[in-house]
Computed example of a mutant assay.
Amino acid sequence: MKVVVIGGTGLIGSKLVAKLGEHGHEAVAAAPSTGVDTLTGEGLAEVLAGAQVVIDVSNSPSFEPAAVMEFFGTSTRNLLAAEAAAGVGHHVALSVVGTERMPENGYFAAKIAQEQLIEKSGIPFSIVHATQFFEFSRSIADAATDGDSVRIAPVRYQPIAGEEVAQAVGRVAVGQPLNGRVEVAGPEQSRMDEFFREALAAWGDPRTVVTDPEASYYGSVPGERTLVPGEGAIIGEIRYRDWLGQNPAK
């Protein structure tokens, strides 16, 4: 099966290409560095020729609300049009757990818009909602830093290893289209402030985590269960401390 991975050179995309290849599929990494640009449409027709499945794990280079909305809107429209022309039978997209629960967040709003375009396209689809990746823990802490403090809301939090996100997306991609959504999350749920308090200690980071019910997450204040999945989610097996032991620099 030929599977084209949009964003195939990134964190999740590169893992997907490797995993799909290990299982005998023709996995093609599509990204600007490989001559495929979803914003301009360059290279799309060529890379999609003969593809049965397209997986979109691309991401906006900017999280500024207008920029991220423009990125996902333009790239998704171009991609879906090219897929329709090529006869692609399954569109898979990676999104975020909780998008519908925090629509005032610029990034989440852009992902909602992307999902709506996919639903209306007429192409059979599957959307995978993932919780926050372990790999982004340090950048999340940095974004929440105020001086020597890291201000984190005491809400539920259930992050996951990027490897297990790629595994879940890959399995969905080679199956029948869901024409709906599935959630994936890590094996441990805790309070977000407690997670980061323990994480900073494990990193040897001197910053202090401050529990702040009004602390924002990339511009919006999450609710108690905004960032965690509901019933029926795919649950990973890798725990953060075990992952950190294998990835000490991350």
Rank of each mutant, 00 (worst) to 15 (best):
238 I>Y: 00
126 S>K: 02
136 F>S: 14
79 L>R: 01
159 P>L: 06
84 A>K: 14
249 A>K: 08
196 F>Q: 08
161 A>G: 10
162 G>W: 01
174 V>F: 03
53 V>H: 03
176 Q>D: 15
19 K>A: 12
124 P>K: 02
47 V>C: 07
167 Q>Y: 05
89 G>V: 11
222 P>G: 12
197 R>N: 11
66 A>S: 05
21 G>C: 02
66 A>G: 00
41 G>T: 06
19 K>L: 15
18 A>V: 03
61 P>A: 08
71 F>W: 05
107 Y>E: 03
222 P>C: 13
182 V>D: 03
181 R>M: 13
138 R>G: 15
117 L>F: 00
207 R>N: 10
195 F>N: 06
200 L>K: 12
70 E>G: 05
131 T>C: 13
110 A>W: 01
77 R>K: 10
224 E>C: 10
224 E>M: 13
126 S>T: 13
125 F>V: 00
182 V>E: 04
169 V>K: 07
115 E>F: 08
187 P>R: 01
49 A>Q: 11
61 P>D: 06
112 I>P: 02
130 A>N: 13
21 G>T: 03
98 G>Q: 09
233 A>Q: 08
13 G>A: 08
227 L>Y: 01
168 A>G: 04
149 S>C: 14
211 T>M: 12
154 P>K: 09
190 S>D: 08
111 K>S: 11
236 G>D: 03
213 P>A: 15
42 E>D: 11
232 G>D: 05
113 A>P: 03
153 A>H: 05
201 A>H: 11
185 A>Y: 04
164 E>V: 10
232 G>P: 05
236 G>P: 07
115 E>I: 09
214 E>L: 15
31 A>G: 14
140 I>T: 15
44 L>Q: 12
117 L>D: 02
125 F>S: 01
102 M>E: 04
140 I>H: 08
217 Y>S: 13
85 A>V: 00
209 V>G: 10
207 R>S: 08
179 N>H: 05
